[in-house]
Write a protein that binds this DNA or RNA. Sequence first.
DNA 1: AATGAATGAGCCTTCATTCAT
DNA 2: AATGAATGAAGGCTCATTCAT
Lengths: 193, 193, 193, 193
Amino acid sequence: MTERSRPLRADAARNRARVLQVAYETFAQEGAAVPIDEIARRAGVGAGTVYRHFPTKESLFQAIVADRMHQVIERALAQAAADPGEGLYAFLFQMAEQGATDLGLTDAVAGVGFDLAEALPDAERKFMDTVADILARSQRAGTVRSDVDAADIKTLIVGLQAMRRFRGDSELMHRVYPLIRAGLAVPEPPRSA
Amino acid sequence: MTERSRPLRADAARNRARVLQVAYETFAQEGAAVPIDEIARRAGVGAGTVYRHFPTKESLFQAIVADRMHQVIERALAQAAADPGEGLYAFLFQMAEQGATDLGLTDAVAGVGFDLAEALPDAERKFMDTVADILARSQRAGTVRSDVDAADIKTLIVGLQAMRRFRGDSELMHRVYPLIRAGLAVPEPPRSA
Amino acid sequence: MTERSRPLRADAARNRARVLQVAYETFAQEGAAVPIDEIARRAGVGAGTVYRHFPTKESLFQAIVADRMHQVIERALAQAAADPGEGLYAFLFQMAEQGATDLGLTDAVAGVGFDLAEALPDAERKFMDTVADILARSQRAGTVRSDVDAADIKTLIVGLQAMRRFRGDSELMHRVYPLIRAGLAVPEPPRSA
Amino acid sequence: MTERSRPLRADAARNRARVLQVAYETFAQEGAAVPIDEIARRAGVGAGTVYRHFPTKESLFQAIVADRMHQVIERALAQAAADPGEGLYAFLFQMAEQGATDLGLTDAVAGVGFDLAEALPDAERKFMDTVADILARSQRAGTVRSDVDAADIKTLIVGLQAMRRFRGDSELMHRVYPLIRAGLAVPEPPRSA
DNA sequence: AATGAATGAGCCTTCATTCAT
DNA sequence: AATGAATGAAGGCTCATTCAT
């Protein structure tokens, strides 16, 4: 996605990956207010090195989000292929789970303090395509009502992430998630006399 | 709730109210990172005046949240009294609406960056009591399934606020809200043969 | 000293005296960093009232020092009249005692952060005259060596105040004060063969 | 005393030393109320640089005091070794001299606004040990009366510093210092008949 | 390329002083 | 005359970003 005239030197590539990973974990745990110096310290590099790879804090954010998006999409597609009927529900669940421990991703998806569509239009488009794909498969499988579209699902993802962060994993799963699922299910036709 | 030996002087009361209002709007729009100086500027007072009324930024937050909570609760109870069956749905909608333009309230309810239960235990308790009250009325009216409790509703509120912020009012109302409502409705009994 | 066209109204005079007293106690206990608002609060008046009587914090300081100086001088002269030989020692002791609990007076005498001679030349002159007077009486009484002058005594006062503040009253009296006294006493003439 | 995993980079060490020196001079001249920004300006660095080396204003104070203490102790021990009988007097004189131009050191020794024993217990202990050592040597040499202890000497130091600050160097030396010395000298035994 | 020191704008908060009530 | 609210200039400290080593 990011093009470079020359591939990174091996040690530079290692540093970049390490910073990305550490930054992801740190922001996820502590929020976006963590100083870059702290990221550098945890990654075992100098602050200058972080800035060499990511010229602003914002760009580090972007890189993290792009990275996560990529992973999320891969996994979702795999699940949908394996079980189309459950695909959408599995995806929703997975996104809630991710988002709960991943403030950056959540906010990126929700567009809070970070405009995904503007910052990473490719990632945004690919994400929406994936949602549409998975949704269509589940609808064809008859497990999701047909008057729901990809934008609705994205909205639910945003909501579920917030809920998941607010309430514990297990409680969300057992108490709220079923409500959402019931809402998405194909409604019973009115009982005929 | 806050007691003062003597009521504030007229000018002071005016300033206090003005700061509160401006701070509410500003935080809602810009988030909690806005400097106090900016609040003061918008309110047309000196920074010292803000600090006279609210000795820390945190306390200004608290005052805003307490104020909003109070209003929200009042309105919700009035609605529930007028139409018990619709009470819960009206409440959910109202909270989503409020929360969308009111980051402070949202975060306070969700416990993000502000521990409502700790900072304003009275407000928190009253809020939960109100939720339980409205829910019970709707359940008695037969419009909400009985295996849902106040904590579930609070979770949904958090989710709806996030969704509402993400998506426009009208779209949320027409596309996502019905799903939530369907999920909360009393399920059809399995069709007997 | 300070002239006024009209004498203060009774209530104003009462307020002025009260502020002076409270400010003296507060500065003595807490140091000069105490805000004027705090003085006002303790005195039970508004901050504006303090400023009506003492147009700056500095001037409040001056008034306190002048007041204390006056009292110190009165008492010292009385003691010297009663017992000329002990007069100087009593005076030194008294000043150490005062100064220990009275940061303002100490610093004023020492000229630290407050130039007594410049701010209150009358008080300064009167103080030095008093020192000279008491010293002369003790020298005539034969209890103090004759090659010591008023400036030396003032220097010792400054030192004793610092020492007293550093060490407790009783320890200063029993361990260090005798050394000073021995130093001031008329030296033994060299033993003839 | 302070250990660092790696020695500071040359430029950093230069800056640190420069800040320390400038801060010493500035605090000595102007007192502790000088803003850090002013120190930084005089040192020709940014405020952030001061804070990099000394994370709080307090810690800058401590570093200065520790530095001075170290020098004072070294010098005093050297003098005492060279001339035990004069050692204590030389020490007193030196401390008075230092303290007069060094509000930080004075206040640290006197415990005014800075609790040496708490902030730098090692320095405090070493200082007291040094005082005791020098005193003992002078007492053994017969130049100081035996009923004086290290705490008394410390008290005198506090007093002398205050006096020195109040009065010029030469005057203190010629007029007051002899009094103190006379007080410390071994008293003449009462003349036998 | 990496390092980490330096920068400096900006934030929260305090407080001497002024001024409307 | 008294009150206490308002002002606004600092001050200590943080941190994104730049730059010398």
